[in-house]
Design a binder for these strands. Structure first.
Lengths: 164, 164
DNA sequence: AACGTTCATGACATGTTTGTAATTACCTAG
DNA sequence: CTAGGTAATTACAAACATGTCATGAACGTT
């Protein structure tokens, strides 16, 4: 019944491409906590969901782009309030402290022209793609395959389930 | 003959909207040094050009957007290698460590779709606009007016001279 | 030429994010 | 049930960007 794949802290870090220390720090400071199993004291183990991986990868991407962790925090706080939408191949657009999802290029250009200052744009499609690729490469079909959803749709617009 | 307006360190900081400490730090660490008169020891005075103001404002904008100073440094290093173009109402696009200038919305969308990860977009038109506004507001026509180029073209696409 | 103001500089303090290393708890195998 | 390995915790260190403060040099004015 548990369709959800679970990932340990270490694996999560490897898949997402961050250090364990970062994963740990982010969990402690409430940026992204493991949604399956939180840490319960020394020696306990965190368990991350596939969803978590995607979010973490978004964070990682933003960091790579030179964003300050604080800015990422703001973006996520704001973004979490509008989850649940259909985010197919949407683009995450961060305008200072606000975040929006732009679905088409047109919408994006529109946002750009009306917005003041800098806009940070992240195509979400690529995020899923990268996470999936990392999973199969690092952990090729664990021990369960016929039921899981670890399959990757190469380049086409794979719809991210419940957002993000 | 000197058509170029000059700005002291303090004024520069005020106009651009940064602290003097930042201006100082950036100058010392070679991010943006005063192109008119560099510091020559204690008691000397830095003199910034209008060009400098624009660049500084770009930095400020990027910082406000949550970019790390290091990322800004990269962007500028790369950007400086392609100055001298016609940058009318272009958009500065930072793709990780690379920077490009997108002239139209179409070009922008194109860059977006081909680029991996996050893109940081900054419409340059707004930058000039803001700097000019700050100048007139803080220092309404110093004591020389008939010759200087402190005039502002309100909202239209004012072409930034030699880029940026 | 003296003086007060301005400004570059240097020393120091701070917060944030991460690395490293040591410690401790959990889990599975024997 | 015990041993070992793995992973989470904790404590410490370090880098970066900036604020604060004190110092002294240069500028402009009288």
């Amino acid at each position: 019944m548990s369709v959800t794949q679970s990932f340990s802290g270490k694996r999560t870090a490897e898949i997402v491409g961050i250090t364990y220390r970062q994963l740990d720090y982010w969990a402690r400071t409430d940026l992204i906590k493991p949604s399956l199993t939180p840490a319960t004291g020394s020696g306990s183990r965190r368990l991350y969901s596939y969803q978590d991986l995607l979010e973490l990868k978004v964070v990682k991407s933003l960091l790579d782009a030179g964003l300050k962790l604080e800015a990422v925090r703001n973006a996520f706080g704001y973004l979490r309030t509008q989850l649940g939408e259909d985010v197919a191949s949407a683009n995450l657009v961060i305008n200072g402290s606000r975040s929006v999802l732009a679905r088409s290029g047109a919408e994006l250009v529109d946002i750009l022209q009306n917005g003041q200052g800098v806009l940070n744009v992240l195509p979400l499609a690529g995020v899923k793609q990268q996470v999936d690729a990392a999973i199969v490469q690092l952990y090729p079909t664990p021990q369960e395959a016929p039921e899981q959803e670890i399959v990757i749709e190469p380049s086409d617009v794979a719809p991210l389930r419940s957002v993000l």
